[in-house]
Simulated scan of single mutants.
Amino acid sequence: MHKLGISIYPEHSTKSEIKSYMKLASGYGFNRIFTCLLSVRKSKEEIIKEFAEFMELAHQYGFEVAVDTNPAVFAYLGATPFEIKPFADLGVDIIRLDGHFGDLEDIAITRNPYMIPIEFNGSSNMDLDLLVERGADRWNMVTCHNFYPQRYSGLGWKRFLNLTEKYKKSGFRTAAFVSSQNKNTFGPWPVKAGLPTCEIHRNLPIDLQMRHLLATNIIDDIIIGNCFATEEELKLMSEVDCSKITFHIEIVKDCTESERELIFKYRHLSRGDASDYMIRSSWPREAYRNKSIPCRELKGDFFHKGDVVAVNDNLAHYRGELQIVLQDMPNDGERNLIGKIPREEWILLECLLPEYEFGFIHN
Rank of each mutant, 00 (worst) to 15 (best):
E350P: 07
L322Y: 02
N184P: 01
T230V: 06
I48V: 15
A75G: 00
E321S: 00
D89G: 00
I223N: 06
N184D: 14
R267V: 09
L97R: 07
E286H: 08
I8N: 02
N331M: 03
S281C: 01
F302M: 14
V191I: 15
Y9I: 08
K166W: 05
L337V: 02
A58N: 06
Y356R: 06
I200C: 12
L213W: 11
R343K: 15
K169L: 07
T14G: 11
A66R: 06
D220W: 11
S238Q: 05
K85L: 03
I263V: 13
L349K: 06
A66C: 09
H2G: 07
C351T: 08
N70Q: 04
E239C: 04
N226L: 03
H12V: 10
F160L: 03
L57S: 04
V40H: 12
L315P: 07
S243F: 01
S26N: 12
A25W: 12
F51P: 09
I347N: 02
R138W: 03
Y288P: 04
N125D: 15
A215K: 03
K340H: 10
I33L: 10
P196H: 05
T143W: 01
I224G: 08
P86S: 07
I107R: 09
N336G: 09
E105G: 08
V73P: 03
E56M: 04
V92C: 03
I94F: 14
L236D: 11
F358W: 01
D254P: 04
P205F: 07
A176M: 02
K42H: 14
K340P: 01
N125M: 10
D103V: 15
E11W: 11
M278H: 00
E259V: 04
L352N: 00
K299F: 10
